[in-house]
Structures are given as structure tokens and as C-alpha cells.
Design a binder for these strands. Structure first.
Length: 858
RNA sequence: GCCGGUGUGGCGGAAUGGCAGACGCAGUCGACUCAAAAUCGACCGCCCAAAAGGCGUGGGGGUUCAAGUCCCUCCACCGGCACCA
């Protein structure tokens, strides 16, 4: 049968689907089989798949199909990250409802993915925009609310005055709304937060044991940003300052989004006349010559009310856009009337507002030690502040021995920190600060999960009772792109009852960040129809953790941190039994075109549909697997690569066709499985067959080596490019068998049956076609993975490389059972070696383990 | 600046410390053909006319009988973070 993927592939896909070939069992149906949970990152239904999807899904499918043939119960689901901004934009632009737009996109993309032949279990398909999914977002929100893991606080949002609406970060470019160019400013709004910082240490420490790429783990460590040091309080000097004290401890600031360090610092900030700083270098305390506070620090804001210069400075810094401010690395400050006292010397220390101090890290205040900190040094020079050296060391910014530090002189930096903390009882203590921020959940948009709360004038913000879920998105919404959140336009939606007092209440119009949807979807796949719980513990126990997670590196921090966090919360709620959701992670490289990212705007997009329409899915899959190691970029220079893959598949088809015509005599060479698992015609059966010609032996040897290599590459190394090169090599070896080989018919039957199965994960459609042609029963994908026979990994004779002083000088062939002495003798006797050994004294002869090389030292 | 990574033919890449360049792409020559396509065969790192030989995995050094692989050092490039106190 000719290679005609454009006709064959859709037919085979139809059969797979109609016979439910990709279905995975539930926990009760696994029959003691090993499980393999293969996962790809939840796609956004944008409407078309691109080459990145193709690469991602191909590689995942190769692993999943291999594991299935290897005997594992495989779960490989797919679903849709169906909430989000583009659907709302489409609604505004094209007057189509986000739900309709999303449904259409899902159906289009699903058809494309089916045409790739990926073995997804569509029975487990989910879409996050359906109430039977997002109700569980709401339900989990309520459970987290009960645990005290949800809080409300004020935080800046991107506010567009012209449109009267809040915008997402990706809608704001250079301080303007990307569409209209209207100005966007930062404006504080009260929103919901999840206390992810509670898990900061666990999220950091558990990274060590994950089989993840090193760069992703490094990015997460950096994102969490744990930093050990101490908190110190400096007393504000002079009278009349009480009212300007740090308001951290007051009711208002209790509601601020808190980073993890705030917990430790709270005890220290009860007094109202202190400035609190976090430092990693408490040992430099005697070198403090100024204090630098963020322009947004409450004390500065207070002082600016009565100090015009300070107010103008703060306004100027505030007027700078976020990006402009980060790009500017010139230190600037403004002296304030505030003065604090040094906790040991009692000296007065001036307080500055400074542009280089961030309000959202530590306490928004820094103790300035110009002699031992580069930034403080630059600042002190600019404003003529004293630079006092208090550490003796090779590098002024490193730890060392204390000088000019009173009774601490002579101590090491580490010892001094302990001593100072001891002496400053109540005014200082060891502390840890993180860069990780609590997770701001609120989005003021329509197409997302409604936050299940109501606002009651009497009872405040109250959660909706679980029995009232889901809080469904209303359909009667007008999308204009301007004005407040679209949800506020539905009167029926807004009308609610307070669950506490029963009085009238206004429903919450915030929706949830879509990262919530993607933080636990891999658990819903396991029990997608469950109407009483997000998923059952039995299914989670049966399938979790995910064995292989493949996706783009762009999710290295946000999604992969949030999902780990949710998983830990679910563990603490008793829903899952393991600590981490994703055992092994692979981030596949991008598919580029001429060195640049494919994008519509550049017009350099190669559409997978076009490629499949021309070459078929198998050729595209084989190319994707073969082109480069999985984590590297692929540059789609032209169609040469896929031509090569297609050529390979045609060659294989011809090989089987020729065999069927010439050798099979119309009768199947693959008989019924002997014991229900290993089909007859396998290499091990042929081993017992007796006498073989040299070429036949060589082919059987290579066949077994290929089985071992390919199995190893798929199972242990996840190196898919060499899987394909091994297949190509084996195809070449099979075609090299002489036409007059005495037992050609038997050996070809065996070799091709093995080959087709080895090829099946990469080129599943052609494998089915050839499997059927060879007389195989059922789907090739349901046949068993070939096993190699250890004895065939060896040959009767072995090549021994002869090295003299590390240079290859000759080669000899010996019997495989030759011992080291015989190998030595053969090596010394070979003519090339003898020529090089004339007149030289042999000092040492080494036979390497395995005996493949003899090294002679003269 | 800090962190992570990568440097191998014209290109993509292969190689548990043991024959560097597997496999493929591109290319050259040949066969088949009226011709083309497809297919098949041969060649395909550099130096030398060739053989023999020498050189060769970013540079330099080291460990080893043996280094693309391990160690030190320098360089280049890619990615992430970046005034994080």
C-alpha cells in the first residue's frame, strides 16, 4: 500500500476515535498496572494551533504512546484555558459573545489537534469557562477563605481615566492603553489576595527534589527570593513626631498586602515613633550615616504634607512610569525634617526620601551604610554624608572583622550580628524577607470566574454559602471596552442577599485571575464529571503526581509557582496525598522562523495545517522529534527538514511493501501473540532458530541494539531526536539485508514487525497502516513494545581498537569471548602497531573494561 | 552586576572518560530516463598532488594510558532576574 498520508491519516484517526482507543481507565480500572500521567500545559483557545503547540503535543504524545505500549495505564488529557482577555476583546470588536467566540475556537483547535493524531483522552476534556469547572474555583476560594488564606487589601491597579476602567498589565504599554493610547495611571483599589507567602519556604525547599530543568528551578528560587537578615528599629528623635509614626501597626495598614517578612516585623512596630528597616548586614550598624525611605513610605507621605520640597520630590518620582523608574539608575534623594537615633551610639541620623528604595520589599526603608554598600555609597557621595568604615575585609562589600564599632570591635561579622541582636533586645531581631508577594486575585473584567462574595452595608464583605454555588456569569452583558467592569451592567447579577443578616447586598463584580483556573486543572482531568467535589481523593491518589509535564519556558515562574502552591493547599485540605504536582518537567524550545519568533505581525508564520495538508501529520511529528533536542529551539528555515522526514516514511513504506510482495506470499508473518503479550516473530523467538548467515546475525544484532537504545531514549533520557535517528539507522540496516539471505523471509518478518512498533509513537498513523499490512491484529498502538534479547546485544566477533600513546594506530578483530591476555596479544601483533613499536620499549598495556580498546604506552 | 545554560563540519545535530562528526539536511559525481521528477549508488572536517602522516569539538592550562566529556582559568553567545537593602 503506498504512502498516502493525506488519505490514510484521517481514516485511521476516525477508527481510533470510534473505537475509543485513547480512553484511560479510572482508578478502579487500572488492574494493577503502573500508571503514567502525561500532561501538557493547558492551551488558551486562541482559534488556531501554532508550531509551538505541535512540538509540545508531539513530544508529549510520543512519551504517552510509548508508555502505553510498554504496559502502563496512561492518562493523557487535554482541555482549555478558556477564560481571559482576548475573548472580551473579540466581543468588543466583533460583537460576538465571549462564550460563543471561545466555543468556536475550541472546536476549531480540537479538529486541528485530532488531525495531528495526538492520543488525548477526550472523555476527560474540560473548559475552564463552563460553570461545572469554575464553580470549583469558587468552592476552593471559599475553603481558602475559611482557612484565613484569603484577605482583602488595597493595591495599585492600572486605571484608565478616559475609559473609566481597570486594565491588565498586558494592555498597558508605555503608560498607555495599547489600543487607544489613553493615559493609564496607578490607582489603589481594594482587592482579594491569596496568602501564598505562607508557603514560601516550602515552595523554595521542595524545588531541590524535583526532576526539573535547572534554569526553571533557579528562576523560581529567584522569584521567591529568600533573604536572611535582621529587622532593626530606629527611634525617631524630637517631639511632636508621634503623629507621623510608622502606621504599619494601625488598622489601616493591617490590610496591606503582606509579604512574609511582615509577620516577623509586626511585633516590632507597635510603637508609633520608630522607623523599621530590614538589613542583611546588621554587622555594619555602626557605619550607618543616614536612613533612606521609599517615597511611598507612610512617614514620608506624612512629612511631605508640611514640607514643600519633599512633596515636590515625591510627586516627581511618582509621576515617573514604572518602567522609566526602573530604567533610571541614578540615585536621587530629598532630605526630610525627620531625624532618628542610632540604637547604640545615640547619634542623630538624618532621614531621606530616596528613589532607589522600593516600598514593596522589606519595610520600604533602608539603613544607609555608605562604606559597605555600593548604592548607599553613591548616595552618600552625592549628598555629602559621612562614610565610616566599620568592617575590615578584602572587599568592602563583603563580611569581615568589625572596627569602629564600640564593644563589637574585633568580632567577625557573623558573631557581631548575634551579639547585636542580643544587646538590642526588642529593638532588633533576626528576620527573613522574601521577594515573593501575596497573590493578587482580582480582575475587574467579565470573562473569568466570579469571586463568590457579596457586599453588605451592615456585615461587610461576606462569602457566598457553598450551597449557592456556582455564582454564574450573566449573559445579559454589554461590551463596550469603556466604563466600569462589564458585570456592573447586569442588574440581576448585582442583586444579592447577605448570607449573614439576610438583608439586601451587592454582588461582588471582581472576577478571578485566570491563573487560578490553571492552578488545579490537572486534578479536574482525573475526575471531570464529579458533581459533588472538585475531584475525588481516590482518582488523585491513583494518578498523581504528573509523571511528565511538558510546556513552554514562559511559565517557569507564575503558573508553575501558583500550581505548586494550590497543590500544597489542597494537600493541607486533605485532597491530595503528595507534596508536589509535577514530578518531571520539560520545557520545549520555541519554533522559530529564520531566527525570529513566528508571529502574525511579522508575517512569518508557518501554519501547521498547511504542513499537514501537504506532508501529513506523521512527517510533521517525525520532523519535530528529530530536528533538535527537546529543550532547544528549532529554526524552521524551509521545508527541507520535513521533506527529509517524509522521505524516511516513504522509504519505510516501500520496505514493507516490497517485503509483502516478495516474501509474504500473501500470508501473514505475524502470528497470534504467544502468551498474550509478546507477539511471535520477536527477536527472542528467532534467537532459538539455529543457524544464521553473517549478514542475518548482524541484522539481528542491530535490531536488538536499536530496541535497547530507543527504549532507553524514550524511558530514561527523554531524548526524542535520537529515537528518530535510531529508527532511520535501523531502516537502513534492514534494507541492507542481501536479497539472497537464506532465511530472509523469517528475519524480515521479525525485523519489520519490531520496526513498525518502535516507530509507532513517532509516526502512529503509518505504523497502523503497516501493522495491518504485516498482518498484525488490532491497533499497533495496543500491541506490546518490543523487548530486546541481551544475548543479541553481543556479536561473535569484536573489533578492538589499538592505541599507542593515546593515538589510534590500528584495529584488530577478536572472538567476543577472548580474554584480556588474548586481546593484548592480538593488539601487539597487529601490523600497524608493530610498525609503531619498532625500537620502542613497551611500558604498559591497558585493556579497557569491555575489552573494546587496547592502549599501549611506550 | 547576580543566577542558569551553551560553544562540535556549510547547516540541524550524535557520542555512560575509550575509534569525534552517528542520523539527517544541503552539496558534488554517477546510475535509471528522450528528459525531468522520484528512486538507487558513491563522495562529502582541515592541511598535503596523493599515500603515509599531521591537525581538529571557543582560547589557554591541568588530571589521565586515554578528555568534546572531569578540574582550573579566560573568551564569546543565549536565557532569566536586576537599585531586593
Amino acid at each position: 500500500m503506498p504512502f498516502n498520508p493525506l488519505v490514510q491519516e484521517p481514516e485511521i484517526q476516525k477508527r481510533w476515535l470510534s473505537e475509543n482507543a485513547f480512553a484511560s481507565p479510572s482508578s478502579s480500572g487500572m488492574k494493577g498496572r503502573r500508571k503514567f500521567y502525561a500532561l501538557v500545559m493547558l492551551p488558551y483557545p486562541s482559534g488556531r494551533i501554532h508550531m509551538g503547540h505541535v512540538r509540545n503535543y508531539t513530544l508529549g504524545d510520543i512519551a504517552a504512546r510509548f508508555q502505553g505500549m510498554r504496559g502502563a495505564a496512561v492518562c493523557q488529557p487535554l482541555g482549555w484555558d478558556a477564560f481571559g482577555l482576548p475573548a472580551e476583546n473579540a466581543a468588543i470588536q466583533n460583537n460576538i459573545h465571549p462564550a460563543a467566540w471561545t466555543r468556536q475556537n475550541i472546536s476549531d483547535m480540537k479538529a486541528q489537534i485530532v488531525s495531528m493524531g495526538v492520543s488525548y483522552d477526550w472523555n476527560r476534556e474540560i473548559a475552564t469557562c463552563f460553570p461545572d469547572y469554575y464553580r470549583w474555583n469558587q468552592w476552593l476560594f471559599l475553603r481558602m477563605w475559611e482557612r484565613g488564606d484569603v484577605f482583602r487589601a488595597e493595591r495599585n491597579v492600572n486605571w484608565c481615566e478616559a475609559l473609566g476602567t481597570v486594565l491588565a498589565n498586558e494592555q498597558v504599554i508605555d503608560g498607555k492603553y495599547e489600543r487607544t493610547g489613553d493615559a493609564v495611571v496607578q490607582k489603589p483599589m481594594e482587592q482579594y489576595f491569596l496568602r501564598i507567602t505562607k508557603y514560601a519556604d516550602e515552595l523554595l525547599n521542595d524545588l531541590d527534589d524535583l526532576d526539573w530543568p535547572e534554569n526553571v528551578k533557579a528562576m523560581q528560587r529567584h522569584w521567591i527570593g529568600r533573604s536572611e537578615g535582621a529587622v532593626v528599629r530606629f527611634q525617631v528623635s524630637g517631639g511632636g513626631k508621634e503623629e507621623t509614626g510608622d502606621s504599619r501597626g494601625t488598622g489601616k495598614h493591617e490590610a496591606r498586602p503582606r509579604d512574609a517578612s511582615a509577620t516577623a516585623s509586626r511585633n516590632l512596630s507597635t510603637a508609633t515613633c520608630c522607623i523599621e528597616v530590614f538589613t542583611t548586614r546588621l554587622d555594619t550598624l555602626f557605619g550607618v550615616s543616614f536612613m533612606a525611605l521609599s517615597t511611598e513610605h507612610p512617614l514620608i507621605a506624612e512629612a511631605a504634607k508640611t514640607d514643600d520640597a519633599l512633596r515636590r520630590f515625591c510627586e516627581r518620582i511618582a509621576a515617573m512610569g514604572r518602567e522609566e523608574r526602573l530604567a533610571c539608575d541614578v540615585k536621587e534623594g530629598c532630605r526630610t525634617p525627620i531625624v532618628v537615633l542610632h540604637p547604640f551610639t545615640g547619634d542623630t541620623v538624618p532621614v531621606f526620601a530616596a528613589n532607589y528604595v522600593l516600598m514593596d520589599y522589606g519595610s520600604g526603608a533602608v539603613m544607609g551604610v555608605p562604606a559597605h554598600d555600593e548604592r548607599d555609597n553613591e548616595f552618600a557621595k552625592k549628598y555629602g554624608l559621612p562614610i565610616v568604615k566599620v568592617i575590615e575585609s578584602n572587599d568592602p562589600f563583603e563580611k569581615g572583622t568589625l572596627i569602629n564599632s564600640g564593644r563589637f570591635n574585633g568580632m567577625s561579622s557573623d558573631a557581631a550580628v548575634d551579639a547585636m541582636v542580643g544587646d538590642l533586645k526588642g529593638m532588633a531581631e533576626r528576620s527573613v524577607t522574601y521577594k515573593l508577594k501575596d497573590w493578587g486575585l482580582s480582575r475587574q473584567r467579565y470573562w473569568g470566574t466570579p469571586v463568590p462574595t457579596v457586599h453588605c452595608d451592615r456585615c461587610g464583605v461576606q462569602p457566598v454559602p457553598a450551597s449557592d454555588l456556582p455564582v454564574s456569569l450573566p449573559e445579559d452583558i454589554v461590551f463596550t471596552g469603556a466604563g466600569p467592569s462589564p458585570l456592573t451592567t447586569s442588574a440581576a447579577f448585582l442583586r444579592a442577599v447577605c448570607p449573614v443578616c439576610g438583608g439586601p447586598a451587592r454582588r461582588e463584580t471582581d472576577t478571578m485571575d485566570t491563573f487560578v483556573d490553571s492552578s488545579w486543572y490537572f486534578l479536574r482531568y482525573l475526575d471531570p464529571q464529579n458533581a459533588g467535589a472538585p475531584f475525588s481523593r481516590a482518582e488523585a491518589d491513583a494518578w498523581m503526581p504528573v509523571d511528565l509535564y511538558i510546556g513552554g519556558i514562559e511559565h517557569a515562574t507564575a503558573h508553575l509557582v501558583y500550581a505548586r502552591y494550590f497543590h500544597k493547599v489542597l494537600r493541607d485540605l486533605g485532597f491530595v496525598g503528595c507534596d508536589e504536582p509535577f514530578k518531571k518537567l520539560i520545557c520545549q524550545g520555541m519554533v522559530l522562523k529564520d531566527g525570529a519568533k513566528m508571529s502574525k505581525s511579522k508575517g512569518n508564520v508557518v501554519d501547521p495545517d498547511d504542513v499537514i495538508a501537504r506532508y501529513g501529520a506523521d512527517a510533521l511529528r517525525a520532523f519535530m522529534a528529530f530536528a533538535a533536542p527537546i529543550e532547544k529551539e528549532i529554526d524552521w528555515i524551509g521545508f527541507e527538514g520535513i521533506e527529509g522526514a517524509s522521505r524516511f516514511l516513504r522509504r519505510v513504506t516501500r520496505l514493507v511493501d516490497d517485503y509483502c510482495e516478495q516474501d509474504m506470499d500473501g500470508e501473514s508473518n505475524i502470528r497470534e501473540p504467544r502468551d498474550g503479550s509478546v507477539p511471535a516473530g520477536s527477536a527472542e523467538r528467532l534467537l532459538a532458530g539455529g543457524v544464521w548467515s553473517a549478514e542475518e546475525k548482524l541484522l539481528l544484532h542491530k535490531l536488538n541494539v536499536a530496541i535497547k537504545r530507543i527504549t532507553d531514549d524514550l524511558e530514561v533520557r527523554y531524548q526524542f531526536n535520537t529515537v528518530v535517528s535510531s529508527l532511520m539507522e535501523l531502516a537502513n540496516d534492514i534494507s541492507a539485508l542481501p536479497a539472497d539471505a537464506p532465511r530472509r523471509r523469517e528475519i524480515m518478518g521479525c525485523a519489520l514487525s519490531v520496526f513498525v512498533r518502535l516507530m509507532s509513537p513517532v509516526a502512529p498513523h503509518l505504523a497502523e497502516q503497516l501493522w495491518e499490512q504485516l498482518g498484525g491484529k488490532g491497533f499497533c498502538m495496543n500491541s506490546s513494545w518490543p523487548e530486546y534479547e541481551t544475548a543479541w546485544l553481543e556479536t561473535d566477533e569484536q573489533l578492538v581498537v589499538v592505541q599507542i600513546n593515546g593515538k589510534v594506530r590500528g584495529r584488530v578483530t577478536v572472538k567476543s569471548n577472548a580474554d584480556d591476555e588474548e586481546r593484548k596479544g592480538a593488539a601487539l601483533a597487529c601490523p600497524e602497531a608493530r610498525a609503531h613499536l619498532i625500537g620502542k620499549e613497551i611500558r604498559k598495556v591497558i585493556v579497557v573494561p569491555g575489552g573494546k580498546l587496547v592502549s599501549i604506552v611506550v
